[in-house]
């Protein structure tokens, strides 16, 4: 047999990446802070029980046969109970997080929105809900509608439109960065190829990409990979020490309410926060990182 000759042609091979979104050069460490930069992100996301299971399998999506009360209620626990433990742990240490909030959350849980707003946490958009993934099988007009609907719902609930965006499951279509910039967003946190922010080009001007945790997120390590809490905390501490030594880089600490907000992890979470504070990190927000 033989392959189509085009399989051995490489039209994008050259001194550039195989797309035009960003340069391949690594950004230099930030001079805006010394040692470790710490960005705490708390996802406040809604997983509908009837969410589609394709074409993008969203981490944390419904896995068991419909109707999966197991999957649905375990995640909903996070928005009822787990997040209040995370708030308590952060409040006690004078820390603020960036909440990555689904657009449907204000309509469902206004009390939670008020509690986030009262803490003056930064708010970034996390899509309409976890069932509405962005991907190239969805028409562009529909994607634009989802982005605007999410932005408007969060703007109405929090009083100002969010500048940052995190797509469900880090999934983007080919035009998501363009649509985000056109909708007034100035940064997103989906591409996991750096531990520093970098600029992307879009048809509506620049859009920064911020380093969202994925490999070192609680969802990945504790839920998907089934590591122990102690193993997770140890790896975070190892990463923090390394990034501090490299000077001017960012550790993104993701605290997911339905994962890290479980009761049996509370003491470990507090211990982890205390250990990180001993490194005297620069406390960062998305806006500071995107600047």
């Amino acid at each position: 047999m033989t392959l189509d000759p085009r399989y051995l042609e490489y039209p994008s091979r050259g001194a550039r990446l195989d797309h035009g979104r960003f340069a391949h050069r690594r950004p230099p460490p930030r001079a805006a802070w010394h040692g470790l930069g710490l960005w705490i992100v708390v996802p406040v996301q809604h997983f509908p029980m009837d969410m589609p299971r394709g074409p993008v399998a969203i981490p944390g999506g419904m896995e068991r046969p419909y109707p999966s009360y197991w999957d649905y209620t375990q995640r909903d626990y996070g928005n009822r109970v787990g997040i209040y433990r995370i708030m308590r742990a952060l409040d006690e240490r004078g820390l603020r997080a960036t909440a990555a909030v689904s657009g449907c959350i204000p309509g469902r849980y206004p009390a939670l929105v008020a509690d986030i707003a009262a803490r003056e946490w930064e708010v970034m958009a996390a899509g309409w809900d976890m069932g509405q993934a962005l991907h190239s099988a969805r028409p562009e007009a529909e994607e634009r509608g989802l982005i605007l609907r999410t932005r408007n719902a969060l703007a109405a609930a929090f009083g100002t439109a969010p500048h940052g965006w995190h797509s469900p499951g880090h999934s983007q279509s080919a035009v998501t960065p363009d649509l985000l910039a056109e909708a007034g967003f100035t940064w997103c946190a989906d591409w996991i190829n750096d531990d520093l922010p970098f600029a992307m080009t879009t048809r509506a001007g620049p859009l920064m990409n911020l380093p969202m945790a994925w490999e070192l997120s609680d969802r990945r390590c504790l839920f998907e990979q089934q590591q122990t809490t102690a193993q997770f905390c140890c790896q975070i501490a190892d990463a923090a020490a390394r990034l501090r030594d490299e000077d001017g880089r960012v550790l993104t600490l993701m605290l997911t309410p339905w994962v890290m907000g479980q009761a049996h992890r509370y003491r470990a979470m507090c211990g982890l926060l205390d250990a990180l504070m001993e490194l005297r990190p620069a406390l960062l927000t998305g806006e500071m990182l995107a600047a």
Binding site: P55, V56, A57, S136, G169, H170, S171, Q172, W191, W214
Partner: peptide, 15 residues
Amino acid sequence: PRPTPDVLAYSWRDY
């Protein structure tokens, strides 16, 4: 595994 562009798979390796 995801429709093109699979941002997660691509950017993980690009790291």
